[in-house]
């Protein structure tokens, strides 16, 4: 699914990733670990196609609309409601039966009662749940999650645990985390960035 050779990314003078080799088979689960500033987010943005490598090779066997990407920011309009945001993304991703799919995700992540509220009124944890809905909306075959547990409360974390367990093996997952113990039971490989 993913093949990287000598992957490098610089931001101006600063080299954030250098010489990374990575092979991920379809259905694999990669835990990306490392301290702050080690390039975890950069790696995920590279895999998502938001950033281009400045050196090395990167091949991804997935079309852009088969990739789900969870970033630090929720990537949703603050002044639209959860429903309006997901409607827009669902239409852009051409999600079949999108009303049902959106309703099911909002229900699962406990946002259904707040679906008409604007995201600006959401707490950080609710925004993160919405971001998860947005990431999984189009049932991506490659799921990239950048610190998915951040801002989630205990309930939210349990929901995500269950989601990851259900996706494991079915989808290819790359999850960055500063708490590797949380995903280690599911992970098939670990990339440790320094």
């Amino acid at each position: 699914m993913i093949r990287a050779r000598g992957l490098e990314r610089r931001f101006g003078e600063k080299r954030v990733l250098a010489g990374l080799d990575l092979d991920v088979a379809a259905g694999g689960f990669v835990a990306v670990t490392g301290p702050n500033g080690s390039g975890k987010s950069t790696l995920l943005a590279l895999l998502a196609g938001l950033l281009a490598p400045t050196g090395g090779e990167l091949e991804i066997e997935a079309r852009r609309d088969e990739v789900g990407y969870l970033a630090h920011e929720p990537l949703v309009y603050r002044e639209l409601s959860a429903l309006e945001n997901l409607e827009l993304y669902g239409r852009l991703y051409r999600v079949p039966e999108r009303r049902e799919r959106i309703g099911m995700l909002l229900e699962r992540y406990g946002l259904w009662p707040a679906r008409h509220e604007r995201v600006s009124a959401y707490s950080r944890g609710m925004a993160q749940r919405l971001a998860l809905c947005r990431t999984l909306l189009h049932d991506p075959s490659l799921v990239l999650l950048d610190e998915p547990y951040s801002a989630l409360d205990a309930d939210g974390a349990r929901l995500l645990d269950a989601e990851l367990a259900a996706l494991t093996g079915e989808r290819t997952l790359v999850v960055s985390t500063h708490d590797p113990d949380r995903v280690r039971p599911l992970a098939t490989q670990e990339v440790s960035l320094a």
Partner: peptide, 14 residues
Amino acid sequence: RDQRVLDGLVLATG
């Protein structure tokens, strides 16, 4: 620009 929505749209739009 707020919340990097543009990145989300860039990924979602064919």
